[in-house]
């Protein structure tokens, strides 16, 4: 690993985020809207990719972590808003950043809780368990009056801007890429490629799986916080199973295990959503067909390019 280049890329990404934020007033609202959604989707897809792509643990509960982060950070900024509404803007943003982090940490805690039972589970079972966890998070929010229940939370201060979104997206990409590309990170790939062999080679597969879940959930929580402080209104319905599927589609189309591919897919799918607005009815059908065909002819994903080794046939 050549840290210099990675750090330069990180710095460049952050500078680009600043620049983008600086020209934001020149853009119309809709363009900013698409950019922010694209940035949030990058964070979601790249973080899910750490779990699904790099570590080979299939999670279907990303929306649940997103919800955990979104609600936690919103509750904080909402309770602080009487103080912050009169304070200078920068103080609001500092508070917002703190709230985001707390939301991310809480989501990471949820990720830890999911990661632990996942130690015993493989592939398809894990997918259903994570789906279950995601749904449980949603059901709990829905039945908690303090979180607005089904009515949702409204009036969340709109702190999210292009700087926050792309700054965090850059950091997410940097963290995931550095994690995976470090010596330490070889472990993730080893767990994915052959868990039993990895274990035999002395790799602590448990630690890697839980790390992947915790880091993935943390960034999903940040993405949730950004989303909440952008739309200003959240309700449990927005974090359902189909939202998780959206992110899974990005990861698969982008190529599981390929960070640039997945980030590009996140942007591409956000744009497609807008371009194909009039064909909304067909959009998901096309994606579904794409998933099936891809798995048959190109399981590494549309944009991904790593060689996925053929596995031995499933053991009876």
């Amino acid at each position: 690993m050549k840290p210099n280049i990675a750090h330069i890329a990180l710095a460049a990404g952050l500078v680009a985020s600043f620049a983008l934020n600086a020209i934001a007033p020149q853009l119309d609202d809709y363009a900013v809207n698409i950019l922010v959604l694209a940035g949030i989707n990058i964070i979601l897809a790249v973080s899910l990719n750490l779990v699904n792509g790099h570590t080979g643990q299939f999670s279907l509960g990303h929306a649940g972590f997103m919800a955990a982060g979104a609600y936690t950070s919103s509750i904080i900024t909402l309770s602080l808003s009487p103080v912050l509404s009169t304070a200078p803007a920068w103080q609001g943003h500092v508070a917002f950043f703190g709230a985001l982090l707390v939301g991310g940490v809480f989501a990471a805690l949820c990720g830890f809780l999911v990661g632990v039972p996942s130690l015993r589970l493989r592939g398809d079972y894990l997918a259903i368990v994570t789906l279950g966890f995601g749904e449980i998070i949603r059901v709990v929010i829905q039945n908690t009056e303090a979180l607005g229940g089904a009515r949702g939370l409204e009036g969340i201060p709109p702190y999210t801007n292009l700087l926050w979104t792309f700054g965090i997206a850059t950091v997410a990409i940097y963290v995931v890429a550095s994690l995976v590309n470090s010596t330490y990170g070889r472990g993730f790939i080893a767990v994915r490629d052959d868990e039993i062999a990895a274990e035999a080679m002395g790799i602590n597969t448990t630690k890697y799986k839980v790390t992947a879940f915790v880091v993935g959930a943390f960034f999903a929580g940040l993405a949730g916080g950004l989303y909440a402080h952008f739309i200003s209104y959240i309700a449990p319905e927005g974090f359902n199973f189909l939202k998780s599927v959206d992110v899974v589609v990005m990861v698969i189309l982008g190529g599981m295990g390929s960070t640039p591919g997945v980030a590009a897919a996140a942007v591409l799918l956000t744009l497609m959503n807008e371009l194909l607005r009039d064909f909304e009815q067909y959009r998901m059908i096309v994606f579904a067909l794409l998933l099936i065909v891809l798995m048959i002819i190109r399981p590494q994903g549309l944009l991904g390019n790593f060689q996925r080794r053929k596995r031995k046939p499933a053991q009876p």
Binding site: D124, I285, F287, L289, M295, R311
Partner: peptide
């Protein structure tokens, strides 16, 4: 193929 590939296909079929 691996179970994961089949699972993803199954999700695709479900959505379809």
């Amino acid at each position: 193929r691996s179970r994961l590939t089949v699972l993803i296909t199954a999700i695709g079929v479900s959505l379809l």
